[in-house]
Amino acid sequence: MDGMAPFERWFDICELSDIPVRGSRRLEKDGMKIAIFRTSDDRVFAVENRCAHKGGPLSEGIVHDCAVTCPLHNWVYDLSTGKAQGGDEGQIRTFPAEVRDGGRVHLRLATAS
């Protein structure tokens, strides 16, 4: 046991190269829609794929620095915290994400449905 909560674990998701630089991929887990982002410096972030404003799919937004702009109404989220930026107030769920040796993208998600 490595100290994680018992109902969460790391999942091996994909190759880093499966996600375009400054792009994203989508993933569904037990009805939860997740967007995984890759930034220009090859870090990865995962958030709930649902803008706090009107539910827009953040995976379809433009990625810049460590942020994404929602395609529907231009809300901007910091991908590391899930907090809306600028004048907007909102918070989306984030999931721990890492690139491990060999370039595999891992996410920590709940195990049970």
Partner: peptide, 11 residues
């Protein structure tokens, strides 16, 4: 001033 721009300037 930013490392890779924003959703306004990049397009």
């Amino acid at each position: 001033k930013t490392s890779c721009g924003c959703a306004k300037c990049r397009p």
